[in-house]
Design a protein around this nucleic acid. Structure first.
Length: 572
RNA sequence: UGCCCGAUGGUGUAACGGUAGCACAGCAGACUCUGAAUCUGUUUGUCAUGGUUCAAAUCCAUGUCGGGCAACCA
């Protein structure tokens, strides 16, 4: 199934994806409402980006791409207490990775090739605040946070609401100059004290915070609130469509009020809201993800089990898969929970096309081919990718002693088991058909070795190569096998809805979300590259982890192959 | 409680007054030197009740259920 977005990379007109936001944008294009379409992705640098942000990135950059517009990456950094350059850097890297080769040409950048920062507009925003004061539309309020809360809840006017413009101007200047401690005063808009919409009840515009900022240093001790900074940052950057998630819906009247009361000359941006992503077996809150990191429940923000973009990337998922996933789930205002299988499908679909096939035995059991000469080595042809002819072939060594997967042998085979069993035949992929003649066990009854004979005419090109045997299994020549640490990742939670009915998400952590084993790999895997993706045939897709060292391979299991046998064998 | 938003198969989405379609998942089968991929077939749906209309998932009203907001966070 091809994705029209991917299939039409140069498109500047609206292609297939259709949702209510794109419909609006398309209509604006028809009406020539704006000289060009300009969106933005505005994360707060207070944590790592996750797959929910990926949905938003694909939406915002996707729209810019489809309509020949621009999308700005902007740090929404108005709260220095929670923000840090570590997050600025990770966000920048994650966005560039996700849109690289797809929408990076739509990326709006400051001259220094750095992302935009709301904090770069603090001077400008400050002037807008002054303008509002001068128009009698904002005032400095001396109430405590608790009082302010109570008055707003009750719809009562602040006793400081009617201060003169002169006094407000003076007070606001002195706020800026650092004459008051944190919380002593606050700048408020003068709108409607008892509006049914809380956000119109004389909302807070500027607070005092004697805190250094990661980007502006010690220049400011007052910082604009989200509602004030966001719409103005959008305006300053010439944003046309300011797309955010549903919880900001009730803020929209305030977004509009601020812009409309400032006598701004250019076309005003408009805010549109869509439903954030909820994914099964996943939590999405930045705060809770940080908890997993802080409490060492995972190894870091980029732990491959994390739903962060960096975690997903480290796991081996490619950006194409994430983009296709974002495309497939659509954009609406309905708060649903997307089944993880949709994500898993997108990952497999992408990897099936791109991954090189390799033979590796995860849980080995030794096999001796008794009629194969000791010391003899054959080099067999193996196909690198059945999905891509151009990927070519490689040689795989075959010898008398091999490893096969423990699960590919059953002493007492269940119904419909067509792998190796006593007296039974199976094909070794790219090699011979073998027959199990003897099962060797140790004193405690554990199987230690399988002694088999091979049909020496049955390999590719041989006289009996066309013989049909039901099963084909993978294998690795024992003397040639290369050991690799393999990290088998599984979902982080055991429940599709970790926080259902208010339960603590930490109570449903999956104890088996990571299993580390040593696998036996075919020798060509010694040269595995971090940019490459591999399918260990019949098992799963893998990618080299950044912990890999020149003599020490470490693979992450990105995702298993679909396993119809697992399903079949569980029936009755 | 007030205000705002939403509701289409198991899940996510399309249909913009005129045949309820797609994807994932499921099931059944074909094919297979990957029990993968691919291919074929297939089960399941318009929250409820009224109204408008020749015709309603779509428009209107009421109700039900779900979500959001009520931080000197974003």
């Amino acid at each position: 199934m091809s994705n029209p977005i991917e299939a039409n990379p140069g498109a500047t007109t609206a292609p297939a994806p259709s949702d209510f936001i794109r419909d609006i944008v398309a209509q604006h294009v028809v009406e020539k409402k704006y000289p060009r379409i300009h969106t933005r992705f505005p994360p707060e640098p207070n944590g790592y980006l996750h797959i929910g942000h990926a949905k938003s990135i694909c939406l915002n950059f996707g729209i810019a791409r489809e309509f020949g517009g621009t999308c700005n990456l902007r740090m929404d950094d108005t709260n220095p207490a929670k923000e840090d350059v570590e997050y600025v850097d990770s966000i920048t890297a994650d966005v560039n990775w996700l849109i690289g080769g797809w929408a990076d040409h739509c990326l709006g950048l400051t001259p220094a090739k750095a992302p935009f920062y709301a904090s770069d507009y603090f001077d400008h925003i400050y002037e807008f605040a002054v303008a509002l004061i001068k128009k009698g539309k904002a005032f400095v309020c001396d109430m405590t946070p608790d009082q302010t809360d109570e008055y707003r809840r009750l719809g009562k006017p602040s006793p400081f609401r009617d201060r003169s413009v002169t006094e407000n101007l003076d007070l606001f200047t002195r706020m800026k100059n650092g004459e008051f401690p944190d919380g002593a005063k606050i700048l408020r808009a003068k709108i409607i004290v008892d509006s049914p919409n809380i956000w119109l009840r004389d909302p807070l515009l500027y607070r005092i915070k004697h805190t250094d900022h990661h980007h502006t240093g010690s220049k400011w001790c007052i910082y604009p609130m989200y509602d004030f900074a966001h719409c103005l940052s959008d305006y300053i950057e010439g944003i046309t469509h300011s797309i955010c998630t549903l919880e900001f819906e009730v803020h929209r009247p305030l977004y509009d009020w601020i812009l409309e009361n400032l006598d701004l000359p250019r076309a005003l941006p408009k805010q549109y809201e869509f439903a954030r992503l909820s994914l099964g077996y996943t939590i999405m809150s930045k705060r809770k993800l940080m908890q997993l990191v802080d409490e060492n429940l995972v190894t870091g923000w980029d732990d491959p089990r994390m739903p962060t973009i960096s975690g997903i990337r480290r796991r081996g998922v490619r950006p194409e898969a994430l983009r296709n996933f974002a495309y497939n789930i659509g954009i609406t205002k309905y708060n649903g929970i997307t089944d993880v299988s949709v994500l898993e499908f997108a990952i497999r679909e992408d990897l099936n096309k791109r991954a090189l096939r390799r033979l590796a035995v995860l849980r080995p059991i030794k096999v001796v081919i008794t009629n194969f000469a000791e010391g003899k080595i054959e080099e067999l042809d193996a196909t690198n990718s059945p999905e891509d002819e151009t990927a070519g072939k490689r040689k795989v060594p075959f010898s008398r002693e091999l490893y096969i997967e423990r699960d590919d042998f059953a002493e007492v085979p269940p119904p419909k088991f067509f792998r190796l069993k006593p007296g039974g035949e199976v094909r070794l992929k790219y090699a011979y058909i073998i027959k199990c003649e003897e099962v060797v066990k140790d004193t405690s009854g554990n199987i230690t070795e399988l002694r088999c004979t091979a049909d020496l005419d049955s390999k590719t090109g041989g006289a009996t190569s066309a013989r049909k045997v039901k099963g084909t299994i993978h294998w690795v020549s024992a003397p040639h096998a290369v050991d690799a640490e393999v990290r088998l990742y599984d979902r982080l939670f055991t429940e599709a809805e970790p926080e259902k009915d208010g339960r603590d998400f930490k109570s449903v952590l999956n104890p088996k979300s990571l299993e580390v084993i040593t696998a036996k790999c075919e020798p060509s895997l010694k040269d595995a590259k971090p940019t490459e993706r591999y399918q260990f045939e019949r098992m799963a897709y893998f990618a080299l982890d950044l912990d890999s060292q020149p003599g020490k391979l470490v693979f992450n299991r990105t995702i298993t192959l679909k396993d119809a046998w697992a399903k079949e064998s569980q029936k009755k």
